[in-house]
Every structure is written in C-alpha cells, then in structure tokens.
Nucleic acid binder design. Structure first.
Lengths: 142, 142
DNA sequence: GTCACTCCTGGAGTGCGCTCCAGGTCAAGG
DNA sequence: CCTTGACCTGGAGCGCACTCCAGGAGTGAC
C-alpha cells in the first residue's frame, strides 16, 4: 500500500510543495520511493516520519534542526544519545515558550476584562473612568 | 522622566531597530516625542504600549494585526467593541495554538520516553527491540 | 578642533519557510 | 491521434519581521 504525493498531502496536511521541499532539504530519512514513471510513492513509514517532522515543526523547531535530527537518525546506531539530547533541549524550549505565551495570554485576558467592564458595565458603573490605552491628555498639545 | 531609545530598548527587550521599525510601521499610538536635537524620548506611556505590543507579538499576532489594533485605539471612542472583538479572536487563536503545541509536546515526550528506555533501560531489558525510527529493513536493498 | 559617542534617516539586505512557475513526461479516455 | 490530468524538475519569487548600512548631525571630553 503506497500513496501518491496528493494522497500523502491529504493524509499529512502538508502541501504537495512542502512534501517535496522537505525531501529536497533532507528532512526525510531517505528519498521517497518512486513508481516506474518516476512518481513518488509514500509508504506508511514515510507518513509516520512526516508526522513526526510536523510535530517538531509545529512546536517551533527550525527546519535546520529537524534536518540535524534526521541526519542523526540516518547515521544509525550510536547517535541515540545525541537524538535524545536534541529532543530534550527542544522540550525545554517548548515548555519555556508555553509558559511565556500563557503569561502573555493572561495579560491579554486582563485587558479583555477591562474592555468588557467598560462596555457592558458602563450602564451600572459610570464613575472613575478606565483609561485603557488613551494617550495622556495634553501630551502633544501642552 | 523620559528615556533615550537605548534605554527604552533595554527596558522593553526590543532592539533599537525594532523600536524604530514599529514606530515607522504604525504599531505605536503616535510618533514618539523628540528632544531638541531630534532624538526620540520615550515616556512611561510609550513603554506601556510597547509592552502590550510585545505581548501581542509574542503570542503570535502578526504585525499587521497589531497595527489594526493600534489604528482602532488611535481612532478613539466608539471602537471599543472592535478592539474587544479583535482581542477575543486573538485569544481564541492563542488558546487553540496552546492546545495544539501541548498535544505535540506530549508526542515528543513519548518519543523521549522511548529513547530513554532504550538507552538506560537497555541493561535491564534487552528483549523485543524498539524500532523507533529505523527504516524498515530491506526497503532499499531487497 | 578633533575624537568618540549616540542618535538620526531612507533604503537595502537577510533568513526563514514555504509557494509558485515554466517546461516536460507519462498514461488513460474519447 | 489528441486532450486531460497527475506528476516531475530546477529555479525563481514571496511575505514576514526584522536587521543592517551609509551618510550625517549634535554633544561632551580632552
């Protein structure tokens, strides 16, 4: 059971161009097999690897780093510790990034809270005046 | 109390070039004030806004969307609902992205688990043989 | 007055990750 | 036979978000 590039594209969610680009750029373990007429044929192992690549890419790993990982896998036995190190480091970065985004997200949610209050709480509470982000009065025309 | 661009850069974590670029591109609410010699002077309100921009950027909002938000704030009263909508939509996207990254992260952690087992559990358990990502034997040399 | 320093401007350049294109091959259907 | 359609290749092009550069001006220390 092997798939055409169009089918592989549908199954992985990557565009046909991206699949070819990943292959050219060495992100795949080996060139994809070809039919008699030179068309690519993806097998389940190819798709599985592409899914892993997608996983790494979607968590922010740069293409060149994915290639490094693929290089290690291609090199075979003896590189397992290096692969593990690479994945570990990436994991740390992803976690740090998640924390950062989460923190920024709550700042945004605070802002949303202020706006919501201003807009929908305006009928009941109309004193004080929330500034939000209006520029300080008179800063340009003193 | 106003700061030079170098000081603003240090306080916000953005590069000097980026601060100028954001201003040129309309991401700031208004042109930064200038000293007698034409040098930029950042006040606390400028920094506060830059911090908000950083918050939006760090959560993946494109520059053009930040500009749209700045445009709305600049437009003043009556745009609050639009601003709220924009923030809400961004919030949804950030949450979706967080979920996606979290899911991919656990896939990566499973992989790390397999490698760790293979490397450090090898002394105790040496049967079965985990495949990980080796290509199927004989796929290229049948 | 001459360094060194920080800042200014407009515009060019960079790195990334795709995405698109021209021109061509093969196979099947009408 | 001819068209249609899926695929191929090498290479160019694109959008984004910066980042860098050349050339210049003001300020202070010596």
């Amino acid at each position: 059971m092997s798939l055409t590039i169009a089918q592989a594209s549908a199954r992985t969610g990557l565009s046909i161009d991206t699949l070819r680009y990943y292959e050219r750029d060495g992100l795949l373990l080996r060139p994809v097999a070809r039919s008699a007429t030179g068309h690519r044929r993806y097998d389940e192992a190819d798709l599985e690897w592409v899914r892993l690549v997608t996983c790494l890419r979607a968590t922010g790993m740069p293409v060149r780093e994915v290639r490094r990982y693929a290089d290690l896998v291609r090199a075979g036995d003896g590189t397992e510790q290096d692969r593990l190190d690479l994945l570990h480091e990436h994991r740390e970065q992803v976690i740090a990034q998640l924390e950062q985004v989460t923190a920024h997200l709550s700042a945004i949610e605070r802002k949303i809270g202020l706006y919501t209050e201003k807009l929908h709480g305006a009928e009941t509470e109309r004193a004080g005046g929330l500034d939000l982000e209006r520029a300080p009065a008179g800063s340009l025309a003193p």
